Structure formats: structure tokens, C-alpha cells
Simulated scan of single mutants.
Amino acid sequence: MTAAPAIEARDVAKIFRQGTGMFSAARHVRAVDGVSFAVPAGGCFGIVGESGCGKSTLARLILGLYPATSGDILVDGRRLADMGRRERARLIQPVFQDPFSSLNPRRRIRDIVGLPLAAQGVGGAEITSRVAAMLERVGLSAEMAGRLPAQLSGGQRQRVAIARALILRPRIVVCDEPTSALDVSVQAQILNLLAELRRDLGLTLLFISHNLAVVEHICDEVAVMYLGRVVEHAETDALFRAPAHPYTRALLASVLTPEPGRGIPDVGLGDTYPDPANIPPGCRFHPRCPIAVDACRTQVPQPRVLSGRTVECLLA
């Protein structure tokens, strides 16, 4: 029998209600709208898209920080909604974007890393030994346990955040832009550390990023999100080699290069920014799509499997 995926989303949706004033009607924002995917144990699944496309909301749904409006999230075949907070914490842990804001500035590093163990009822002596071992595992010396976050560099703080995420020995780690606040040279160190930990500890990673080069380097599969939907899902090599959705092609074309004189690329998406509270009829990408036809304005594209990938586009 085939083992259940480490984590699976089944038609997951999250709708937020926004009040616009005392005499105005409320708006409903579909931040995540019918997202489905499955990640095998030990895999690394990337989620990319513009700001506001629903990536971080999806991460919070997977972490159990938001309840889903509809659909199910399963871990090893079990519904996440049926698990208690402590059990979820033992299975899934996050690494956030900015380590300075995600670490308590008033606590020592040993207390920050050891807090998840204390919350699970682990004794003091065991906490001390496990914190020391985990700090060493992520490349930090034992003497840093007595420091405050402000006394560490950005890369060191992110290593502390990774140590805190791994101290409970979870199976799944959700990385929400874990390198975007770091220098380029430090980014490479953190990415190599995550790849090493994934291999040695058998971790399953969900990796959310704007940086397509980072996603290409570390992920096995990639889902491209637009206005709450996954518009393309493929293996990383296939997606970067031959993107099928026009939005995916625009994302790849938007990557800046260090070549002098190239300037800022024109990806043909115009100046209109998508509004998740006012999703257009038909294909939700058609107001910005450079190849849209009349059918795109009225017909909602359904997911289609093309050459091993899933695409939501009438013209793919």
C-alpha cells in the first residue's frame, strides 16, 4: 500500500469578512479558494506568487492558526482540524520571514529555543541538553545560549528560529519567506542548512517565497498562486523549463538580472493590481493576461493535466 502524503490539502478555502464602515456593506475576501495539493514525506513543496495571492494565508491554515472556511487539511491521512494544539505543534512548526520580529527580544536564546519543550511538559535538565544539541546542529556555539536576539546577526537569529522550529522534532516545517530578510551570502548558508536538515532528519518542507531562484534551488514541486487559486502546479524542473500558464511565464520573466543596461523587464501585466474582494468573472487572470480571448472573460477555467502538470488556463 502507498503511504499517505505527509501533508495534503483538499479543496481548501478561506474567506475573510471585511467591514467597510457603519453604513457600508461588508465585503468578503476569498484569500484561498479551492486549493488542493499533496506533498510526500521528505518532499519540498514551493508556493510562489505576488503579494496578496494567498500564500501566507495558506501557510497559516496549514499551521492551524486559521480555521478553514471549507475543505480539509490532512497530515498523514488525519484531519488537522481533529488534532489538539499540542499534537499539531509536535507535527508542524513554522520558520517566519523576519527572525528579529519572530523572536522575543527580552528572552535569552536558551529560553526561546526551549520554550516549545516547556510547553509540552519536558523537564528542565532535558531542556538544557536538547537546546545545546539543537543549537550545535544548526551551526551555533553553546555560548550563544545566554545571549539576547539583539546580540546576534540576522543569519544567527534565523538559525535560532530554525532551532526553535526543530526542537520538538516535527515532521513538517512551513518556511514563510525564511531568507528574504537576509543578505545574499547568508541566504545561501540558510538554504544549505535547510537542505541538510531536510536530508538528515527526513523533514517535509513547505517553502513560500517571492524569490524564484531560491524556489528553483530547493523545491521538488512548485504551485503558482494567483488570487487564491493554484493556476499551475508542476515539478520544479518542468515548470522553470517550460511554464504553461501566462501568469507563470510573467513571473519568470520578471526576475531581475545583474546585466548592465537590461533595465526593469516589462512582463506585459499592466498597472492593474488584482483585488481579492472583487474577483473578475471568467478567468480571474484575464484583465492582466496578454493573450486573453473573449472566452476568457466568461468561462472559468478548470484544472487540466497537461504533460504531467496541472494548469488552469483555457489557452494552455
Rank of each mutant, 00 (worst) to 15 (best):
A3V: 11
G19D: 11
G21F: 11
M22G: 08
A26Y: 03
A26L: 02
H28G: 08
V29R: 01
V39N: 00
A41G: 11
C44N: 06
G46N: 05
G49E: 08
G54T: 07
A59M: 04
L61I: 05
I62W: 00
L63G: 08
S70V: 15
V75H: 04
D76R: 15
R78D: 09
D82M: 08
M83Q: 12
A89E: 05
A89S: 13
Q93S: 12
P99W: 03
S102L: 05
D111S: 14
I112W: 00
G124F: 14
T128Y: 02
S129D: 13
M134K: 02
E136A: 15
S141H: 15
R157V: 08
V160F: 02
A163Q: 03
R171Y: 01
S185N: 08
D200V: 04
F207K: 05
H210P: 00
H210E: 04
H210A: 00
H210W: 02
H217F: 15
D220Y: 08
V224N: 02
L227F: 12
A238I: 03
L239E: 03
S254W: 03
V255C: 11
E259I: 13
G263W: 07
R284E: 10
R288C: 10
V300G: 06
P303S: 08
R304N: 04
G308W: 12
V311Y: 07
C313G: 04
L314N: 14
